[in-house]
């Protein structure tokens, strides 16, 4: 195989990874005559591709929060800096997301913006879905299925409906104008699906549901790992007032 071609391909990809992870860019002699603006554009596309892979782990969050938000950027920055995508695509690696985060030290974990809130929320949904699919909530009472997301938000199960309300005090994507948003999550017995309805703050009402989507994911090792992280209390809750009733 061509040694020059191999070196060029190595330099090109390393340059793009360095762009994304914020590492110092070395002098890549084979890229001297390249249009760096366009290379940087493709590096940002590389991030975009990986962000969408995160929906395997954070399906609800990624649906409602702009992929350019600081949490996803933070995860990917560390992914590119410390792990380097290898072998299979990240889509597959994302299934082993817990192994990746397990390598983070406490400092990195604590600095991950909103991670505790988001992981808690995703875990809550996963638990509810898992319970529903396994029929353990059919005869459950409100008390047994109460799940606290944060001190100021909660997931409540009433009869066969699962409803979760929370509002963000600030948006995750700092480039957008701050506005309040709300989510209502409900699961009815007939559909066997968790439906997520997004309603605007001004129209926040059980009866005004703007749109709905369907989710389906099993209680897998990622979820178990998330639970482990939460139980370890390793994640700093820097934004206690992020969610509230």
């Amino acid at each position: 195989m061509s040694k020059n071609l191999k070196e060029l391909q190595n330099q090109l990809i390393k340059y793009m990874v360095a762009t994304v992870s914020g590492e110092d860019k070395q002098e890549y002699d084979k890229l001297i005559n390249y249009n760096k603006k366009r290379l940087n554009l493709m590096a940002s596309m590389m991030v975009g591709n990986h962000v969408w892979s995160l929906e395997k782990i954070l399906p609800t969050t990624i649906k409602y929060i702009h992929p350019q938000n600081d949490l996803f950027q933070y995860i990917l920055k560390h992914y590119f800096a410390y792990r380097k995508p290898s072998g299979d695509t990240f889509l597959l690696e994302a299934r082993n997301f817990y192994e990746f985060i397990m390598q983070w030290n406490d400092t990195i974990l604590k600095q991950a913006p909103y991670l505790k809130d988001i992981l808690s929320f995703e875990l809550a949904l996963a638990n509810v879905k898992y319970a529903y699919e396994n029929h353990t909530i059919r005869y459950a009472t409100r008390e047994t299925l109460y799940y606290s997301l944060t001190p100021l938000s909660q997931l409540v199960i009433l009869n066969y409906d699962i409803r979760c309300f929370f509002k963000k005090k600030r948006v995750f994507n700092l480039t957008l104008k701050p506005k309040k948003q709300s989510l209502l999550i409900t699961c009815d017995q007939l559909s066997h699906q968790i439906r997520i309805f997004e309603v605007s703050d001004s129209n926040f009402s059980l009866l005004k549901m703007a749109q709905h989507h369907f989710l389906s994911y099993p209680m897998n090792k990622n979820n178990k790992f998330i639970q482990y992280l939460i139980e370890r209390k390793i994640l700093e809750n820097r934004y206690e007032n992020l969610f509230y009733w």
């Binding site: 191999k6 391909q9 190595n10 090109l12 990809i13 390393k14 793009m16 990874v17 493709m42 596309m45 590389m46 591709n49 990986h50 892979s53 380097k84 995508p85 290898s86 072998g87 299979d88 695509t89 990240f90 889509l91």
Partner: peptide, 10 residues
């Protein structure tokens, strides 16, 4: 390339 998969068609 060896060790890094960008998932991007270059």
């Amino acid at each position: 390339v060896d060790g890094i998969d960008t998932r991007l068609l270059l």
